[in-house]
Design a protein around this nucleic acid. Structure first.
Lengths: 327, 327
DNA sequence: TCTTGGATATGAAACTTTTCATATCATCGG
DNA sequence: CCGATGATATGAAAAGTTTCATATCCAAGA
């Protein structure tokens, strides 16, 4: 921090106006034009900039929002972080980023850190159910945390149905839903619900594999596919993976087993990350509207009128086909 | 921000001690044990937490560092952001993230925003040469900004040499270096220098393609390869791409042209992003030590003794081979 | 001309912390 | 037993802003 930075007092003196007038100018409050001009030129001359800490102390508003994410090297989370950051900056706010590695303690700690006075609001995507503070505006992504905490998510249920619909439209007749990790009661769980619901409605066989994330994931998947392999042919021809990253993984396992995508099996992922869109993979995906999610979170958080904030906002997803030309 | 949060005064009253004593307790200054205990229990009872804004105002230290990046949905930048965030949190700091979209104005604006008083220090990776403020600790990544601004980077030159060495070791005899965008005078330019230097030393032919990033990139690449294509065979058998993302792109163009990787052409990228490591691509990469870079930046920024800060820190890279089994 | 009203500039108070000069206390050497 | 010493608690001042009650000004209406 600069040592002897010019203060409002300096600007006021330079401009020959009162302290309060300078304050008004920098807060966009009505001030006579001649005054405004004098203040602005004086401020420019002195190189004055508002001290956010003094402002935060006095006014209680810091123009800072905290974003809490499990990590940011997952492509979807990175996208989210970027869009939240941009949306905030457009509105004159800055973003404090916390990464938790999905550990419950870290998540609680992060919420604690922003709890009292380190941010005007919090946007969080947590893997664990935690108690959101009632005393700071809070928006949750992908998980309902409580009656007064709005939750923003993709329409995961519709996304799951869409995935099934598209696989069927592609001619698949025996579907599977694959996910990793035990249910953590988030909105994302509804992907599977939607998928299975459509399968039931169309009376299409659908098997589900929920994988523990604690041990030997890859081996479990290999066994799963070997169980479904008969005479070198898979008795599954359409797979819906709960995330794109999982889709990439599955795709590689299938390749190792000598199965071709999309000729032998069709794969649909979920997230809409760039890599999967690459035609080299031939996987389709259900695209989450990352930018829309980010902007919705920011708008909800910064809403002046906090009287009727919705409990859950589901945003529409879309289907993006994979590449169609074989390498 | 919480409305009527307990203050130090409340804690002091509750504990029956002076204000200054409470302050000392929260700043780790020597205090009698009985006093410390009383303060701590009182603080816990009241749910008191230090108000960072009052502290920032009075003490001038905010325990906040700004990270300025062109974007965060590039896998390498995401990795960097994550490691910087973690390193800062471990040291009791928090991270303010700014994304600039690489625009010169946005970069200058971001530096301006943190200039006076919004952060204890700045870590920046900028695409444009800009004037770093002298009044706030500043560390630059991948670009030397001035005599008093330390720059942290991978050893790009050695990385370029390593790439050439490995391609030759794989049996390649006619190499090419591909990069996108005009030189922007950053450390990353040295990748090409190192690569070409080793080619010269070994007397291996090496052509370089620098691509303007303003128009028809893909078409330019296609033409480049078509110019080098004779009777369906490429007169290049080893390609070094300046970044992994470019490598992925090139790989796809080659596939479209009917060329196989790695049978017909070997590709080495640079960055060490996860996706390229995936065996589905058969591209090798020069891995940048993202975590080490992040930690070095943070340590340099937070160094108490600012008397002998190095001007440039080059960190060692390593070679990571691509997948070896064909799908 | 005098009053009234609206608009806007003024300056002191408040926000919560850290810092620093002063006050207090116990200990120790003489 | 007394004065000096070192350690540590105390409380006022200061940091730069916003807010609010008050003061000022100018124009309009009587």
């Amino acid at each position: 921090m600069k040592k002897n930075a010019p203060t409002m007092k300096d600007v006021a003196q330079e401009a020959g106006v009162a302290l309060g007038t300078v304050s008004k100018v920098f807060n966009g409050i009505a001030v006579g034009d001649s005054y405004r001009l004098r203040v602005e030129t004086a401020a420019k001359k002195l190189g004055y900039e508002v001290n956010q800490y003094a402002r935060g102390l006095r006014a209680g508003t810091t123009y800072t929002v905290a974003l809490i994410l499990p990590n940011v090297d997952h492509p979807f989370f990175a996208l989210l972080a970027q869009h939240v950051c941009t949306a905030l900056m457009q509105r004159g706010y800055r973003m404090l980023l916390y990464v938790t590695a999905a550990s419950p303690e870290a998540e609680r700690e992060c919420v604690g850190m922003v709890r009292q006075n380190k941010a005007d609001g919090v946007i969080a995507l947590t893997y664990n159910q935690l108690e959101a503070p009632a005393d700071v505006p809070f928006v949750s992504i992908d998980r309902c945390l409580g009656p007064n905490i709005p939750c923003v998510a993709s329409d995961n249920y519709a996304g799951g149905r869409l995935a099934a619909e598209r696989l069927l439209a592609l001619g698949c007749t025996r579907l599977a839903f694959l996910r990793i990790g035990s249910s953590h009661l988030s909105e994302t769980d509804k992907r599977g619900d939607g998928f299975e619901s459509l399968c039931r409605a169309r009376q299409v066989p659908c098997c589900t594999m929920r994988l523990n994330d604690d041990a030997g994931e890859e081996a479990q998947f290999r066994r799963f596919f070997q169980d479904h392999l008969q005479d070198g042919r898979l008795d599954i021809d359409g797979i819906f993976c709960a995330t794109d990253l999982l889709a990439l993984w599955i795709r590689r396992i299938l390749a190792d087993l000598g199965l071709r995508v999309p000729e032998d099996v069709q794969i649909v992922g979920f997230d809409g990350i760039q890599q999967l869109g690459s035609s080299a993979y031939y996987c389709s995906t259900i695209v989450q509207p990352a930018q829309k999610i980010a902007e919705t979170c920011v708008d909800l958080l910064l809403a002046k009128d906090r009287s009727n904030i919705p409990a859950l906002v589901c945003l529409p997803v879309r289907y993006a086909p994979g590449g169609t030309t074989r390498e």
